[in-house]
């Protein structure tokens, strides 16, 4: 069983930039409105989340980096690899980009506790805590 996200229908045909403060349809918005909740659903049911990047107008790298990077920060790279499959047949280069750039850097951020920037306040979101339980995060305290 799997849970699916199609970015072009579930979010936007024209994904935007990194943060809500600088762009419409940003990576930050996508993560907090869709990706975090769907990933938690898949994780808690022991299923796979299939994220389909095809059929949009194209992605700025910062959108991919911010949205999927935040998922790594909140759930760890191991859990993301265990429960997330990304389909990008039209632009396979995004898979290379994730493996070579986003995954290692955001895992490093997670280990170093380098808190991701949030440009607006968000509804509480799911996060794996140190004891391996998922809790609701009400916002990072610096």
């Amino acid at each position: 069983m799997s849970i699916n996200i199609f970015v072009h229908t579930d979010f936007s045909v024209y994904p935007g930039l990194r943060h809500v403060s600088m762009s419409q349809s940003s990576g930050e918005e996508f993560y907090h409105k869709i990706l975090n909740g769907k990933f938690y659903e898949a994780y808690s049911k022991g299923e796979m989340l299939v994220l389909n990047l095809d059929n949009t107008g194209g992605y700025p790298p910062s959108f991919i980096d911010e949205s999927i990077g935040n998922l790594v920060y909140d759930f760890s790279l191991a859990k993301v690899k265990e429960h997330l499959t990304i389909i990008s047949e039209q632009e396979p280069s995004w898979l290379d980009y994730l493996n070579s750039h986003t995954y290692p850097l955001w895992e490093q951020r997670r280990i170093e506790k380098s808190i991701p920037k949030k440009t607006i306040s968000h509804e509480p979101w799911y996060q794996l805590n140190n004891s391996g339980n998922v809790t609701l995060n009400n916002g990072y305290s610096e």
């Binding site: 024209y14 990194r18 762009s23 107008g57 194209g58 790298p61 910062s62």
Partner: peptide, 12 residues
């Protein structure tokens, strides 16, 4: 898509 991505990054 490549040009959309590129202009997006410029705007970013």
């Amino acid at each position: 898509k490549k040009i959309n991505s590129m202009v997006g990054e410029m705007a970013g």
